[in-house]
Design a protein around this nucleic acid. Structure first.
Lengths: 337, 337
DNA sequence: GGTAAAACTGGAAGCGCTTCCAGTGATGTT
DNA sequence: AACATCACTGGAAGCGCTTCCAGTTTTACC
């Protein structure tokens, strides 16, 4: 048995006929437009209720040139990246914000070439009213496509190469500085950092925060190893740092995963945390509570990121002029520092 | 400065005019319909290329009554549930499958009442061509709505109250049996289980698998405590089991989070794992590798779940008659048992 | 009571596409 | 040579809604 044939939804014409008014009148009451007499409105409302009428989205979209859908695009070569809890949090934030509107969320994991061209097509064919972009790599062609499509667009996090007109970002620089200053305040001086990929803005900003804090405190940045935000990357970096600077006494890791990897290596090397080596991470997306010892880390509010991106996009679509936002980060003290 | 005005996309009429043919002819070549002469096709194709024409999605949707969008709905009261890595994996699977089609994914976190009514509206207004439903609680009104809307629908996991016509599910029963049999094979006899919520089908199926394995082996199910799939829930259940059955020698936990909580309590209570107590979890979504000791667990392929749901829905939309699927689970041996 | 302005109304023209249909010319069959 | 058949074509009628506009009624005000 196939899906049961739905009984056809009534159309506006039918509603109008039943209410004994013209289609335009009916349309006006549905859209709460002015110039509708009380009698007309009530007749139409009654007919709507009786017939269970709901306006057809597509038809309305065609007439108004508004789809009522916004896209969230995660453009990254590795589809598994999406498994990072970061995105789930973004989506929770986005959804919460959309719930206060009439917009729906279209999710686009544009990893492959095909995925990207599908997204491009979606934009060019006016399949959505606006787009939120995340995790672009530096010279993502999507950037140009979005521009050329002239579609309202907001960025989550800044791409490396250019400053988008509208973006929401966490205060990575400030957070990194905060973390490093805290380590300095603890009396540590041989503070090293494991960065994220230097090919990303996040990676660079968090590194820069570390350097600035060190220099402002009159210390020299003790050592740097590049990680990739992953646990294994963190472990590898930790090993090489331990080799080259065995006397290090604190670490600022650019992500909690990185920190977790570092932590493991440190323990294995017989260092006690935080007594011998203090460790601070970045993100605070759950993982930080589950390391051993629990991780002191810089908290960023990812749901807020999603929420603010959405609000910004909604504003943009409504024709307003929002301004970009940087969300504060804060230090969360646990046991690793 | 507002988003730059996009230069208007050319329409089919304009393409037809440029190619010197009628609109219907142009439409035919775009849709690769028959009855198009070579000359016509080439003229139209040239015009399309020259003008950079792309058919307007909405207009096409109105004419064909197909939106080219499918929904994935997560209907659950707690929006945070979505943060569970499970859903990210589902989405990766869904996206991969959709990439081979011309469909896009609309994601609907229908937690609040408002969220649900927005979803309802989306369905009734024919905003999507089909829907995948997940995480419904027993008597979710969505079920009826979907039915009434007569929309192609597939379920991810079975709801408690009824067997949907089309669903994809992991073999929870079989997995639980596998886990328990393994513990039995280890020579354990005082095997307890911490279940998921008994108000869910997953919870019940995994419990039933445990009981069946025990009974088939001639053992009596030693003790059961109800958990809620979370780490804290697992810890609480573990405590009470340890109280009432201090001599237990193995645990089948209905999820890895549950197992992690149990593990913590066991270690704190001075039991060694797996020597004193063997522990097996369920899910294998990353967490299992990070517990101490790493968790022996039942692996379910969540990406496959997403992928198969999608394929099933696509089939359904195409008018075919797919059949429901149960995906095998398998035991992954690590150190906890 | 007369006028100007305002409120209301329905007809009609879109939005950009698909698809049915009747008509044309080309091809094939006896 | 007459006929049926087929591929092709463009006109026209949708899909279900919004919105402009011109006309009609009401209201407000002197």
């Amino acid at each position: 048995m196939a899906a049961q044939r739905p009984r056809r939804q009534p159309t506006l014409d039918e509603v109008a006929e039943r209410a004994g008014v013209s289609r335009s009148a009916a349309s006006r009451v549905i859209n709460k437009a002015p110039h509708v007499s009380r009698a007309t409105r009530e007749a139409v409302e009654r007919a709507i209720k009786e017939m269970g009428y709901l306006p057809n989205r597509t038809a309305r979209a065609l007439a108004t040139r508004q789809t009522g859908i916004v896209a969230l695009a995660v453009s990254h070569d590795d589809p598994e990246l999406f498994a990072d809890p970061f995105f789930a949090q973004v989506i929770v934030g986005v959804s919460a914000a959309l719930e206060e509107t009439d917009l729906h969320l279209l999710l686009c994991l544009a990893s492959s070439g095909r995925g990207r061209s599908r997204l491009t097509n979606l934009l060019h064919t006016r399949g959505v009213d606006g787009i939120m972009l995340m995790a672009l790599h530096g010279d993502d062609p999507l950037t140009h496509i979005v521009r050329r499509a002239g579609l309202p667009a907001v960025y989550g996090g800044r791409p490396l190469n250019f400053e988008p007109q509208w973006y929401v970002d966490s205060d990575n620089l400030g957070g990194a500085r905060l973390a490093t200053e805290y380590l300095i305040g603890l009396g540590r001086t041989r503070i090293v950092t494991i960065t994220g990929p230097m090919s990303t803005d996040v990676g660079r900003a968090r590194h820069r925060g570390y350097r600035e804090a060190m220099i402002m405190a009159g210390l020299t940045p003790y050592a740097t190893a590049e990680g990739d935000f992953t646990e294994t990357g963190g472990a590898a970096a930790m090993k090489s740092l331990l080799d080259s600077h065995p006397d290090l006494d604190a670490i600022f890791a650019a992500s909690d995963d990185t920190a977790a990897g570092a932590l493991r290596v440190l323990i294995d090397a017989g260092r006690s945390v935080p007594a011998d080596v203090a460790v601070v991470g970045f993100d605070d997306l759950g993982m930080a509570e589950r390391t051993d010892p629990p991780l002191t880390t810089v908290h960023q509010s990812v749901q807020a990121l999603g929420r603010e991106m959405t609000r910004m996009l909604v504003d943009l679509i409504a024709g307003h002029e929002p301004s970009s936002i940087i969300l504060p980060t804060k230090l969360v003290l646990r046991d690793s520092a």
